[in-house]
Amino acid sequence: MPTRKKKKPKLAVFKFASCDGCQLSLLDCEDELLLLADAVRIASFAEASSGVLRGPYDISLVEGSITTLHDVERIREVRAQSRVLVTIGACATAGGVQALRNFRDVKEFARIVYARPEYIDTLATSTPIADHVKVDYELRGCPIDKRQLLAVLSALLSDRKPSIASHSVCVQCKLRGNVCVMVAHGTPCLGPVTHAGCGALCPTYHRGCYGCFGPAETTHTGGLEWALVAAGASHEDIARTYATFNAAAPPFRRAQEEQLVQIRPKEGGRG
């Protein structure tokens, strides 16, 4: 009996509040892009194509965070149309740098940037996709690492469970044979508490990790504090370092708050 040709799976890419960098990672796979396009049907990818196929989709890659009421609805529609939903990057997995608004008054932010803030429609918070819908896999990073993206896509296309390392940047530094920038040069580094994936880039370039892959699975930011202080960082410096691209990821948010408490111990009561 002749076997029926298996239909190619549909891949879709969706964007919420973001810089477009993580979905660009897919177009940056110059050697693999045409091969990937042979293995899947690219059903929706506005940055790259004006063609759109209707859902449902086998794999949806979701970039960006939720910052408008319209997007709260849109992500539910995306979820309903997706068999496997993979969030890509710090915006989608932690709220991104725009989550800095979560700690401040968004109306004040709008007044700083726009002369007519009443034209601006936005929520007070920037939240990760998993706060709104079930997420099947997460890829960390600001931006994601394209090798990790290809690894997840190949696993999903061959019905394997993707395996993404969850250890810290420190482990990657050791694997690369780097000299520790904090121990050897006294450079403050978030490597011990930051999720692996970048290949320990910053220490390889002689600078401290600034946490763009967000918190590792088990972190002990309190234990890192003394080393950062010993390396010359003030509580203000440490608080700012945690308050960047994964500022709203709970371990980094707590670490930031712990530092802020030490800066303003006597202000009590004021929010």
């Binding site: 960098g21 991104g96 740098v97 725009q98 940037v113 936005t122 600001c142």
Partner: peptide
């Protein structure tokens, strides 16, 4: 959706600025 970069750059250290503003655009960081 607006992301308010100019607002949250206030209070950041000058050495952090190149890393933060890169995130305005993934195509031309």
């Amino acid at each position: 959706p607006p992301r308010f970069f100019e607002a949250f750059l206030r209070g950041r250290a000058y050495l952090e600025v190149p890393d933060i503003v890169a995130r305005i655009c993934g195509i031309c960081p």
